[in-house]
Amino acid sequence: MARVVKAEHLSKVYRMGQVDVEALHDVSLALEEGELIAIMGPSGSGKSTLMHLIGCLDQPTSGELIVNGEKVSQLNDRELARLRGRAIGFVFQTFNLIPRVNALTNVLMPMGFTHLLPPREREERARSLLEQVGLGSRLKHMPSELSGGERQRVAIARALANDPKLILADEPTGNLDTKSGAQIMELFDQLNERGHTIVVVTHDPNIAQHAQRIVHLLDGRVQDASEVSLGIS
């Protein structure tokens, strides 16, 4: 199986005023295609930082990171944006839809950045993605007219817009009731079965149960060494 993400000895240091804060310390991690893994840890453990690095929104201070075969440290802003657009789909805790355009346009937006499909075919794809997440009848609804669970499903459809290798979900059920949360996780399971590689950041053990592998973070370090070595092998 191809390796989607390979991280070796990653560390990330933030400078807060006069002091350096080490958010990640020597983290090594590998993600195989088709995996669904969970990253767990209390707040401040560095899970968000790790996700931002894997999502190419930020660069590591040291260590090497390869995403979808590309060395992240060697990419400029433009190439990073391209990689984010084509290889990664984000799902956020707060959904982060554009509030003033409808569901369909929200899903269309990432396709506009990548130009993978000719403009005429984009709307067709956006429709079918929204149908896949069960919102075929809600295409023209504004985000404010949708429930939390529905909004998150629009967000998932948007994450799938450019058919990325990797889906990064940051507390995807954090703002949802149990039932909607379960539906979302069910959706992730389906996507995973279809071959999508998914990383879910969570502190909810019930959510983490869906994962084939759990990476525990504490104070910027990977806690369970056995899991990590298993990943790298």
């Binding site: 929104l57 944006a81 391209r82 984010r84 657009g85 984000f90 937006m109 950045f113 990548t114 817009a161």
Partner: peptide
């Protein structure tokens, strides 16, 4: 600002 973040996360370049 937040919208800019969303756009960048979904592949928008600075130019976009």
């Amino acid at each position: 600002t937040r919208e800019i973040g969303i756009m960048k996360a979904t592949g928008a370049t600075n130019g976009n």
